[in-house]
């Protein structure tokens, strides 16, 4: 593995974490993090879909959109590819491994409208990543997503036991926890190689 791939991994999983610094996919971050098990399952589903979506989007971009000068079609092509991909992955899992389908099933459609997947596909194209770099970037961003959502789910399971002032209950305390996590993640931006 060469140096630039390691840089991509660190940068997309920690420094520019999709949830804590780019704010892509925050709806599911705040919604699903109520339960630890659901968060972990969603995380795995996102890793799965985002890696495949980055690979497919990168191939389409390099071999169809760029050679024909159709880069302006990226948004339409990527969102359709992601939506179709999620459907195919779902049908495939349903047939081939019902156990995984049962665990991830309800999270797959959520991912179509998760802006993190579209955002990363666009970012890869914008940064001019090669196929391998795109796949690595998609995978490590999704790992960063999983890390953040599982951590928040852990924090929330503790918060539930606390006696909070009334106006802070519900969304505010979750947002404040996310802010504190985000402050901690800023520390990673001082990593240098």
């Amino acid at each position: 593995m060469n140096n630039s791939l390691i840089l991509i991994i660190i940068s997309s999983a920690l420094v520019n974490n999709v949830l804590l610094s780019r704010f892509w996919g925050v709806c599911s971050f705040l919604g699903v993090s109520k339960q630890m098990k659901a968060s972990a399952s969603l995380g795995v589903a996102v890793i799965f879909v985002m890696t495949i979506a980055s690979a497919v989007a990168s191939l389409l971009n390099d071999y169809i959109l760029v050679p024909f000068g159709l880069e302006f079609m990226q948004t339409i092509v990527f969102i359709l590819v992601i939506a179709a991909l999620v459907q195919i992955v779902e049908m495939f899992l349903k047939k081939s491994s019902p156990a995984i389908y049962k665990a991830l099933g309800i999270y797959l459609p959520l991912i179509t409208t998760n802006c993190a997947v579209l955002g990363i596909a666009q970012l890869n194209a914008m940064s001019g990543y090669t196929f391998i770099e795109s796949v690595v970037s998609g995978f490590s961003s999704a790992v960063g997503y999983t890390l953040a959502i599982v951590l928040l789910a852990g924090i929330r399971s503790r918060i539930r036991e606390e006696d909070l002032p009334a106006p802070l209950r519900g969304a505010p305390i979750v947002l404040i926890s996310a802010a504190l996590m985000s402050i901690a993640f800023i520390g990673f931006s001082k990593l240098s190689f």
Binding site: C27, S28, G31, V32, A38, Y107, A171
Partner: peptide
């Protein structure tokens, strides 16, 4: 409530 208490299936997005 929708924002922080969904079980994954009733997320806050109408489409989802």
């Amino acid at each position: 409530r929708q924002l922080v208490e969904s079980d994954g299936c009733n997320g806050n997005c109408a489409a989802c």
